[in-house]
């Protein structure tokens, strides 16, 4: 039978504590409400309209916008392409990011590590658009890459990566790689040296150490990095537009078009919420597949 162990707080003290808690939480929740929930609520409202609610037009409500995929079957292609982009970008970021994080956490110290950290987060300090445009300078015909190639192989044909799928992926990986490196670094740095040594003492060589010890323990970092990268990438529109040429059509660009070109805010809003639903679905599925592994040890 459960017994009361701690004496209950006097009423005045516990309500004061409640006020203190509220006071600490209100700024955060207030900001969330103002900056996130209210605009989202407005968008949700729009998504059920027939046309953007400006001018003296009467408001017409409809579910039509949510049937967008059936009215416009080409959107299935676009949606799949966006998810593909997300997978490629996340995959490449993981492939490059985890080894980078490993090198950072286990092979560098002191000054060298600080300098490397700085270099890694440098992309965050630059303006996104400027970054993407500088990639056009590198990737286009006659650009830096092309010229470098011709320095080595003068007779090679012109190299233009611009306006292609790889160009989009390059731009996205460059922009989002730091996220993966940082989240993986946090996980890898938490791996105690003694754990690796213990594995060695039990007869594990470097490949086994990587696959059986380091990779499983880095999984939380990989997963949180993947989430931080996949979600924005499938909605990205700057890189596809600027680096992709005619290839650069994604859910992000389609939604952007609805807001800036077509002035069809209801459709844009509905597409956004459909995308949100897809992302939540993906989360729901993966959280079932990776329960014990992702949970903190």
């Amino acid at each position: 039978m459960a017994t009361r162990i701690a004496p209950s707080l006097p009423a005045r003290l516990s309500s004061r504590r409640a006020w203190t808690t509220a006071g600490l939480l209100i700024p955060a929740y207030g900001w969330l409400t103002l900056a996130v929930f209210l605009p989202l609520g407005a968008m949700l409202f729009f998504s059920f309209l027939k046309a953007a609610p400006f001018g003296d037009r009467p408001l017409v409500f409809t579910f039509d916008q949510y049937l967008a995929f059936f009215r416009r079957p080409y959107l299935f292609d676009v949606a799949w392409r966006s998810i593909e982009l997300g997978l490629w970008t996340t995959g490449l970021c993981a492939l490059i990011g985890l080894p980078a994080a490993l090198a950072l956490a286990r092979a560098t110290r002191g000054r060298a590590r600080q300098v490397l950290f700085l270099l890694i987060i440098l992309p965050f300090w630059t303006n996104g658009l400027v970054r993407i445009f500088s990639w056009t300078i590198v990737l286009r015909e006659g650009g830096v890459l092309d010229q470098a190639l011709h320095l080595v192989l003068p007779s090679a044909p012109g190299l233009s990566l611009l306006y292609s799928y790889p160009a989009i992926v390059i731009g996205l990986v460059h922009a989002y790689l730091p996220y993966m490196i940082l989240t993986c670094y946090l996980s890898v740095a938490a791996i105690e040296d003694s754990v690796v040594e213990a594995a060695r003492s039990l007869g594990a060589r470097t490949p086994a150490i990587f696959w059986k010890i380091i990779l499983p323990l880095s999984l939380p970092g990989l997963v949180s990095g993947a989430i931080l990268i996949f979600v924005p990438v499938i909605g990205s529109f700057m890189e596809p537009r600027i680096l992709g040429g005619r290839i650069g059509v994604t859910m992000g660009t389609v939604i952007e078009d609805q807001f800036t070109q077509a002035f069809n805010w209801p459709l844009g809003a509905a597409l956004s919420f459909i995308m949100l639903a897809v992302v939540l679905l993906i989360f729901g599925l993966t959280s079932r597949i990776l329960p014990g592994r992702v949970a903190s040890f």
């Binding site: 416009r72 080409y74 292609d77 392409r81 005619r246 290839i247 070109q261 077509a262 069809n264």
Partner: peptide, 21 residues
């Protein structure tokens, strides 16, 4: 009229999606 403008937008969006394939 709005619905014609919308039809133009939809067709162009469809063409662009086709270009990207």
């Amino acid at each position: 009229p709005d619905d014609r403008r919308q039809a133009f937008n939809d067709l162009w969006e469809e063409v662009k999606a086709g270009y990207a394939k």
